[in-house]
């Protein structure tokens, strides 16, 4: 994404903040919608649009779990593994998902680039444990380990949105 595109997105937001630095997160989140992660050009575009250095923008981006600085799969599947979900089988679900995608226990992106499987810290759907979020779609749950295959099939069947919010 280039600085003009970022600027166009930020234009209606600018008068909401007294400093352009505050636009970094909105800008980064928007820049990420193009391909689901941020490359160096994206970071530079955000830096230009917000008046900060690229190093600063990268530093901010790297602080947040949901800003991706390396290529990802078309969809990101985040499996909550915090205590409430663990008590209801999130580890088994996660292991099953990784297994089905041929991924190591630490997760990662499937060979065909279709999905990235990652653990997540508490997603705030503990009443629906174990819960799973695809990109920033509404978190779903409970997703039982036995339902993993069906779940993945559904994720893979859905096309990547034109704006990839994560």
């Amino acid at each position: 994404m280039n600085a003009d595109q970022v600027n166009a997105y930020l234009a209606p937001l600018r008068d909401r903040y007294p400093e352009s630095r505050a636009l970094i997160l909105p800008a980064l989140k928007y820049a990420q919608t193009e391909k689901g992660w941020l490359d160096l050009e994206d970071l530079e575009a955000v830096a230009e649009a917000t008046g900060l250095t690229s190093a600063y923008v990268e530093s901010v981006a790297s602080f947040y779990d949901r800003l991706y600085l390396r290529p990802t799969g078309r969809r990101i599947v985040s499996v909550c593994v915090t205590l409430s979900c663990m008590l209801r089988g999130s580890d088994q679900l996660y292991a099953r998902l990784c297994d089905l995608e041929g991924l190591p226990p630490e997760g990662g992106t499937s060979e065909d680039g279709g999905v990235t499987i990652q653990t997540a810290q508490c997603l705030g759907y503990c009443d629906k444990a174990p819960c799973v979020q695809v990109d920033v779609d509404e978190t779903e749950g409970p997703v039982l380990p036995d339902e993993a295959e069906e779940f993945l099939a559904k994720v893979r069947a859905a096309a990547q949105p034109t704006e990839v919010w994560r």
């Binding site: 160096l40 970071l43 900060l52 250095t53 690229s54 190093a55 600063y56 790297s62």
Partner: peptide, 27 residues
Amino acid sequence: SQEVAEDGLLTFQERGGDSEITTFTGG
């Protein structure tokens, strides 16, 4: 870098125990 020289070039990246000092990738 950020507050005295104000060059904005040296930063921390990542979070928590993974934090490390760095410049913009490649810079």
